[in-house]
Design a binder for these strands. Structure first.
Lengths: 190, 190
DNA sequence: GTCTATATCGCGATAGAC
DNA sequence: GTCTATCGCGATATAGAC
């Protein structure tokens, strides 16, 4: 048995989310968070570079997920097909079951400007990882960048709508709806 | 004649940019910036909500520019046509002449994680303003959101490439190249 | 304009895992 | 022994209150 309870980062995350839900993120302090998790302030900053970061754990898996997305895509698919099928098959399963938690978290993030800003980094990381994947598939720099931005937009918008709805429609359905709408917007005839 | 030299915000911006170029943004302090601008620390925080903000003045015009973009677009244009022609006619002229300054500023922003994060907010503001504009043109929520994200991506990518190139190719040319590539990525046949 | 809270981080020590 | 996670103390700058 160790000197410390395991899962310090996760306990800090839970404590921070609970406190933020109760009092608002701006109103709580790092000492408050660490007190609830049974740790010290100094320890907090060893796990997270700043106060906001504690709400964005688990985000580090996103580039990994994007790598999976492209590894699992058939080589003859067009960029939009890669986006549509891969997000449906690889991303959606990862989010299933997290809906209630993600709704709570999103509520906190939306209520704080600093957190909203921090959240935009997630999209940026997705787009970066995606661009590398599309370049590996043979697209040139410009096309790879644009395709990855499209993918990031689809994830962002689809997950947002998935969390918005009262009925829990499968994320995979919403992803397909979103990619279809994207095609329509770009190819719409005058 | 007033008690203060005019243009406090602009002087602070210039001082901050110069100091950041010399020492790196993280290494400089607000008192250093205000000292160079001949002001007090308190005055700094009256003009800017935080230290990073001083490098992002002028950004507040972006929603206005986006409003212009949609006001000036012919009503029968498709979303992609609105993006292509409006960015070329309204956005590009606004950036002309700022290239050297923007390259310097971008160098500073790229070198600091906090500033990179803050910059993503610009894209977010553009997308929000754009979505409102596309809704006004009759697109439904989903399509308006996607079209605005496309527009934000085109601006981002096109301006980035414009600043990257050694030869000063007109921004309008690069915008057209970017929208063309976007169409190709989405409509590419298998 | 002054005062103060608190976010942030450097350093040294400690305690267990291996 | 080394490695890693933690603690405690202290310093500084941001940022907001008064």
């Amino acid at each position: 048995m160790s000197r410390w309870e395991p899962g310090a980062a996760e306990r800090l995350h839970t404590a921070a989310l609970e406190l933020a839900l109760e009092h608002g993120f701006a109103a709580i302090t790092v000492p408050q968070i660490t007190a609830r998790a049974g740790l010290t302030t100094r320890t907090f900053f060893r796990h997270f570079t700043d106060k906001r970061e504690v709400l964005f754990t688990g985000e580090s898996v996103l580039p990994t997920v994007m790598a999976q997305v492209f590894a699992s895509a058939a080589p003859d698919l067009t960029p939009m097909e890669v986006i549509a099928t891969s997000l449906r098959d690889v991303v959606a399963p990862r989010f299933d079951g997290l809906r209630d938690y993600l709704r709570l978290l999103r509520g906190v993030i939306r209520s704080d400007e600093g957190l909203r800003e921090r959240e935009l980094r997630k999209r940026s990381l997705i787009a970066e990882a995606g661009a590398a994947g599309f370049r590996d598939r043979g697209l040139n720099d410009l096309e790879a960048t644009l395709a990855a931005q499209l993918a990031a937009t689809v994830i962002d918008v689809a997950v947002g709508r998935w969390l918005d709805e009262d009925t829990e429609r499968p994320l995979a359905d919403i992803i397909l709806e979103t990619t279809t709408a994207m095609q329509a917007v770009v190819t719409r005839p005058s």
